[in-house]
Design a protein around this nucleic acid. Structure first.
Lengths: 347, 347
DNA sequence: AAACGTTCCGAAAAGCTTTTCCTAGACTAG
DNA sequence: CTAGTCTAGGAAAAGCTTTTCGGAACGTTT
């Protein structure tokens, strides 16, 4: 690659970045003085400082953070290891974490293991080789996962999916509380004949949300219509078929709480097609606040937001504290937030 | 933080990672020998090599990639700068890139600028300080964006949203081709009275897709029903309202191509409610292959997949090549892929 | 026995920054 | 004028790895 007179190589980008030495040479001082001048240390004449700053400016000097890290033992990087990058749940968690770090001087390595243990080990290896200061492990479901172990050289926080090992730090969304919130909202809206259509029973999230709802119904002294939680799949078609069965069995329901917005969309469609009006005759709630689905429903869908950005943010904070030396092991639960839209308006 | 006998600090994670020196000391050789032994260099006796490997194993030694980078001038990292992390379009692109790199020994820094220029500069700064080998800039819409400029010390690839500067490398999805694909598919399915309902006209993607469709109709000598492309919003409600207007005006249409899956969902709902059967009387196509929306539609929605993972993968490949010294400037277009489901089955 | 080759290993430098310590010069005070 | 006090700036080491080069030990050949 030929080098031109101004130091630009032909690949279309400039030559290698300037170092302290280059700045020192240009300013006619030593590297030590440059370092002190640029970092605001004392023992530098104001005049010299200006001269150095101008030289640095001219060369587009940026300190090499890697070299700094070599010295300080801190790299200012963390690893974000997700098992499912496409998942629409892991993403907001990552966003929250990225955001919390991005404000400071920490950068985030992104790795997607695709739910593959081998790949996870590979990435873990790569991250540790890069001397990350800490790790956040983001799950794709709320099902607890194996711990990476206690032998790692850096602190680890598990987000969304908690670790099975209680010595680890985990941050999760409060699904049980969400179920309670849903029932309380229905009752406040004047409903008393409430059914629950859940997602896939294999998922802890499905069971937790339903359990919270059942607890709250019990507290209010209300029955669960249909007598039991209806588990199925996280799909619209499950919502449609299950609610048809439900109104056959209990024609007098006045509220349906769903384990997800997708299920709720199916429920809304099936109710409309069977001639029931929402919310006048039946109120419907979803879960997830999947905006494009919930706001475009007819009527717009009341739902529960898991505050996943907060989960991510909290994970980042815990990790940061642990890096500083004060770890807080255990499962940290983030409250959900109920969003009332038209589908649960007072009938 | 108190250190225990086995070298574990009380923060819950092990002490600082082992270095070459530690391994050398344990194996009773010099650091140079350890380096050669572990990297498969010659001039090491087999016996010594084994001894070193065992020592390294015992100490959980991982080479410090930062120190390696300091020497080689290559860090094995790239920056992924997105303007919208939540966007469901930028995400698959990132995934493809992460995947392409992840296979090798390159790690990805993730930064989200939130569409904010200041934040973008901040992140750019941070990434360059970390001496990334290259940058991928992922847009949130297909609208072209300002170039970061030609003065950066590393190569840059723009993905999804191309750079306005043709000296840059860009990778985009072929939206015009997608419009053509849609029409060709409709014609092959025996349709000839085709309308087009587009998204928001502010978006180049909306205009490109429509333009491709119009071109193809022209080639087939077919009319565009409704006489013009109907621009609106990327929402279900726009799909519902626009298709109602359309069938008022042209009751004899037999196909509707939509600018997105959301619009198509609205179209499907409105058609069903107005008594038209899909696909028997009218065929409907979407765009994006937003799986959870398309597969759960009634009937399942034919659509076009933008192959965004491929966009990301291609961006990674271009970047890698540029790092190696062979840049290929210009806009690289990735073909879309048509997915035929029931909504366009032969009538 | 002397000269020469191999083979294996270690010392040292390079890469970039920060920090500590030291020196040279300027100044003040006696 | 001498001794002492500051101050600005420089030299060097540390942090970790890789690579080059030189040296030691051993064996072979004349």
């Amino acid at each position: 690659m030929a080098e031109t007179a101004n130091g630009v190589v032909s690949g279309g980008f400039s030559a290698k970045p300037a170092t302290l030495r280059d700045v020192a040479a240009l300013a006619g001082v030593s590297v030590a003085t440059v370092s002190k001048a640029l970092n605001g240390r004392e023992h530098v004449r104001a005049e010299t400082r200006v001269k150095v700053q101008q030289a640095a400016e001219k060369l587009n000097f940026l300190p090499n953070v890697l070299a700094q890290g070599l010295l300080s033992g801190r790299t200012g990087t963390v690893g974000l290891l997700t098992s499912d990058l496409v998942g629409r749940f892991s993403l907001p968690v990552m966003m929250g974490a990225e955001d919390a770090f991005g404000a400071g001087s920490t950068s985030v390595f992104l790795c997607d293991a695709r739910g593959d243990g081998i790949r996870e080990q590979h990435h873990l290896h790569a991250l540790l080789s890069r001397r990350v200061d800490g790790l956040i492990i983001v799950g794709d479901t709320t099902n607890p996962r194996e711990s990476l172990g206690q032998h790692l050289p850096v602190p680890v926080v598990y987000a969304y999916a908690p670790s099975l090992d209680e010595r680890d730090m985990s941050v999760v969304s409060d699904n049980v509380g969400a179920g309670r919130q849903a029932v309380e909202h229905m009752v406040r809206s004047g409903r008393s004949r409430i059914a629950y259509i859940a997602g896939d029973k294999e998922f802890l999230a499905a069971r937790d949300r339903a359990e919270g709802a059942v607890q709250a119904l019990h507290q209010f002294g209300l029955p669960l219509m249909g007598d039991e939680v209806m588990y199925g799949a996280w799909t619209e078609s499950w919502g449609r078929s299950s609610v048809r069965a439900l109104i056959d069995k209990c024609p007098d329901i006045d509220a349906v709480i769903c384990g997800s917005d997708q299920i709720a969309r199916g429920v809304l469609d099936a109710l409309r097609e069977s001639g029931r009006t929402v919310p006048d005759e039946v109120a419907v709630m979803g879960h997830d606040n999947w905006e494009l689905l919930a706001t475009q429903a007819r009527p717009p869908l009341s739902t529960i937001d898991m505050n996943l950005e907060l989960v991510g943010r909290k994970a980042a904070q815990l990790l940061f504290a642990a890096i500083e030396g004060t770890a807080e092991p255990g499962i940290h639960s983030i409250s959900t937030r109920l969003l009332a839209r038209d589908s649960t308006a007072r009938g």
